[in-house]
Design a protein around this nucleic acid. Structure first.
Length: 788
DNA sequence: CCAAACCGGTTTTTT
DNA sequence: ACCGGTTTGG
């Protein structure tokens, strides 16, 4: 097997061990406990034991999907049906891949380490592509462009073709190309009608030019990591044949999220052994907007004749009412295979539905409820707030900061997408591969060196004329006379620096090299001199970047990892409430789940309805289903009658999804008493449940309104309310309010988002007086600062 | 070359 | 209302 692969990458494939793998796997099992099949229910067991031929496991929420997947792998290995490196196991995210590896490892011990084909679609695609790169016009050291690089490259293509990128933005072209790649369309396959849509019919042509540029740069984008292997398999049947022989068993997680390209990729590979097991849940397909085709799972048995379908319907996660509510809701969808989740525990608490006057009150009420639960002994770690759109998070953050309630935001700006991290990465990329033109361009004038567009253009021209890299071109340019003395010395400096750094690449540890580069390039200095509030956080991120390089053997390994992973690990840290989007919540579970913002227009989202009509509505409904089924014991749904969207206050009516929840499983909370000071919209929706016909805010006779009048404030806390609270998300790896004021004492050095660094001069309860280095003396709440 | 004015877009997110 | 990117003027 391994020896049939020519290039050096096969070196990491352990040689087939002479016999004994199965035996050792089995031994590992014996060591970790009783037979792994015990404890599975009959359906799970069937899903694990049906090894041969195509299999679709329809796994409802909380039915033990991952367990089935991992146990199945263990079973295959234990029976000696295949060796670890003969199993292909594909997931969508790195996180899922990591988890699967971990869990298989727990079952099998050592044997899991041989599973080199366990990974994401993209990482496995990369692996395949590196082995056969020459066959598709790349060299095996190709680089992988992320979205940012992709846009930059497209901008160049548009410029070269004299297309006004005002009228035809690169982003839009990128979007179109992504769409085509999702459907496995090469430039020649793009339907004429769609090609027409961009730049007066030049869409497909531009796509072709872009592909050619990628090849020139020895680069791929994410789509290519799937597409190119497909092309490879189609054009080189002998290569496909090798993989047919290799992959004796194939497993796919979250099959409902696959797009056309992924489906074709799998189908090509599955022509070999036919042992393809897909696990998924059509009711949890929520990624249609980025190319996922629910159809793939709906027609699995037609695509793979003779496929067996196993349904997992016993839900071990949620209590009865929650599950029934979710089931009742999802039953309104037409396009589904149909499953009925059966609770395995008592009915538990009903799902609650409560209304509030506006989003601020919603945040206050939920905050109060969280504190109430906390005082009853519930851990914050077991609670989550799941929102439809990320702008909703702000309100909760603000509220929690004032309450001093620790929280965690999942899915803010990603670590590796931050400008400073990307800049630093660009330096490293140029050092590792001087041919990386996009990286060089990114940092040639960052920090400012007086090398503007004019100079960059000269470099470009020279590179193109001489057929050399931008770095080489820069070097030659310095020797020539085209440059003004200022630009020339700056560029000379940069080139010499890169020479120096490249020379050290194998001589000093890569982390140290990174530090040197950031220091010597003046990059760290640039931020150190920056007086804006984010600068401090950015410096932190740079340090974090260097730390995150530690586990890697060398710079190359790290860069490869980042290009695929783009996802920083976030430690669990202190006890904290989690705030995230519904999309981010898939696959997770919490004791208590708060679901705010169930209003027409927001959830279901208007845009989804506008763009995809009924299919869009069904996807939104699946999202609601995902939200509810995250809850183990308590699901608390909220809606507000006023919400500020794009800066404008708008009144809203309760989501149609509320009416679709079975009455028997829902408690409508009417009494405003439960949340101190927060008024419910109680009375008005009591009559006809959620009062869809008549927006209740049309009558100014609500508790909220009356209270507002009594207070003599503006009726809507909206327009006039101050919204100046510091946003913690910027500049931190994980935004979180510091739980307790813990640890601050006079003389402590602290950092404040707005005022920067300072020294604590006085403490009064949770109020600190701080002498800020730049902003002078201020009184601040301890929640607003963190230890510097 | 840089800073200030200006414009457009604003659901969800992975790789 | 706000952010980020682009254009424009110094």
């Amino acid at each position: 097997m391994a020896e049939s692969y020519p290039d050096s990458l096969s070196a990491d494939a352990p040689p087939p061990r002479p016999g004994g793998i199965a035996a050792r796997a089995a031994a590992g099992l014996r060591a970790t406990g009783p037979d792994y099949l015990l404890g599975l229910n009959p359906e799970q067991r069937e899903a694990v034991e049906t090894l041969d031929g195509p299999l679709l496991v329809l796994a409802g929420a909380g039915t033990g999907k991952t367990r089935v997947l991992t146990t199945r792998i263990a079973h295959i290995l234990a029976l000696g049906k295949a060796r670890p490196f003969e199993i292909l196991a594909v997931t969508f995210t790195n996180k899922a891949a990591r988890e699967m590896r971990e869990r298989v490892g727990k079952l099998l011990g050592q044997a899991a380490e041989g599973m080199q084909w366990l990974g994401t679609f993209h990482s496995i695609g990369t692996r395949i592509l590196r082995r056969h790169a020459e066959l598709v016009g790349l060299s095996s050291s190709f680089t992988i462009l992320d979205t940012d690089d992709q846009i930059r490259l497209l901008k160049q293509v548009l410029a070269a073709e004299n297309i006004d990128d005002k009228r035809w933005p690169a982003r839009q072209l990128a979007f179109a190309i992504d769409g085509w790649k999702n459907r496995a369309l090469q430039p020649k396959d793009v339907p004429a009608g769609e090609a027409q849509a961009f730049a007066a019919g030049r869409g497909a042509e531009l796509y072709a030019i872009y592909q050619a540029r990628l090849k020139q740069l020895n680069a791929t984008d994410f789509g290519d990591l799937l597409l190119e292997p497909i092309r490879l398999f189609r054009e080189h049947p002998d290569v496909l044949e090798q993989y047919h022989r290799r992959f004796r068993y194939m497993l796919v997680d979250e099959y409902q999220d696959t797009n056309v390209a992924q489906y074709l990729w799998l189908r090509l590979l599955a022509q070999g052994s036919k042992n393809l097991a897909c696990v998924g849940d059509d009711d949890q397909s929520i990624y249609g907007w980025r190319g996922a085709e629910v159809e793939n799972i709906l027609r699995f048995d037609k695509d793979f004749p003779g496929a067996k379908v196993v349904r997992l319907e016993r839900n071990y996660r949620s209590t009865g009412h929650i599950l029934n509510a979710a089931s009742g809701l999802i039953a309104k969808n037409a396009g589904r295979l149909g499953k009925t989740l059966r609770p395995q525990s008592e009915l538990g608490e009903k799902v609650t539905v409560a209304g509030s006057w506006d989003s601020g009150e919603e945040a206050r009420a939920i905050g109060d409820e969280i504190e109430a639960l906390q005082s009853k002994g519930c851990k914050l770690d077991d609670m989550a707030i799941l929102v439809r759109a990320s702008f909703q998070m702000r309100e909760f953050e603000e509220r929690f900061i004032t309450l001093g309630l620790p929280y965690r935001v999942i899915g803010g700006p990603r670590f590796y997408e931050r400008a400073e991290v990307r800049d630093a990465m660009a330096y490293l990329r140029v050092i590792a591969s001087p041919a990386d033109a996009l990286a060089f361009e990114r940092i040639v004038n960052t920090p400012k060196r007086g090398l503007g567009d004019a100079t960059v253009k000269l470099i470009h021209d020279r590179a193109r004329a001489d057929g050399i890299t931008l770095v080489e071109a820069s070097r030659r340019l310095c020797d020539g006379g085209e440059l003004k003395p200022k630009a020339r010395s700056a560029l000379k400096d940069l080139v010499l620096s890169f020479d120096r750094w490249s020379g050290q690449i194998d001589r000093i540890p890569h982390t140290q090299l990174a530090e040197t580069v950031l220091e010597e390039s003046g990059y760290t200095d640039m931020w150190a001199k920056d007086r804006t509030a984010e600068a401090q956080g950015r410096l932190e991120n740079l340090k974090e970047l260097v730390r995150s390089m530690e586990p890697f053997e060398n710079l190359r390994g790290f860069l490869e990892h980042v290009s695929l992973v783009m996802d920083a690990d976030r430690g669990p840290g202190e006890d904290a409430v989690t705030i995230m989007t519904l999309h981010a919540a898939k696959g997770l579970e919490y004791d208590t789940v708060f679901l705010p913002g169930w209003e027409e227009g927001l959830f279901p989202h208007q845009r989804s309805l506008d763009e995809s009509g009924r299919a869009g509505l069904e996807e939104e409904r699946r999202l609601a289903y995902v939200g509810l089924t995250r809850a183990k014991r308590r699901a608390k749904v909220w809606f507000a009658s006023n919400r500020r969207i794009h800066g404008m206050w708008q009144s809203s009516i309760p989501s149609r999804f509320l009416d679709e929840l079975p009455e028997a499983d829902v408690d409508v909370i009417e009494a405003p008493a439960t949340f101190g000071g927060g008024g419910g919209m109680g009375g008005s929706y009591g009559a006809s449940r959620f009062d869809r016909a008549e927006p209740f805010n049309s009558t100014y006779d609500t508790p909220g309104w009356r209270r507002a009048q009594e207070r003599g404030t503006q009726p809507s806390p909206g327009p006039g309310a101050r919204r100046s609270g510091p946003m913690t998300i910027e500049g931190e790896l994980v935004a979180s309010s510091s739980a307790k004021s813990a640890g601050f004492s006079r003389g402590s050095r602290v950092f404040h988002q707005k005022f920067g660094n300072g020294t604590v001069v006085e403490i009064d309860g949770n109020k600190l007086t701080v002498a800020f280095d730049k902003a002078g003396h201020k009184k601040v709440l301890d929640g607003f600062v963190k230890a510097a």
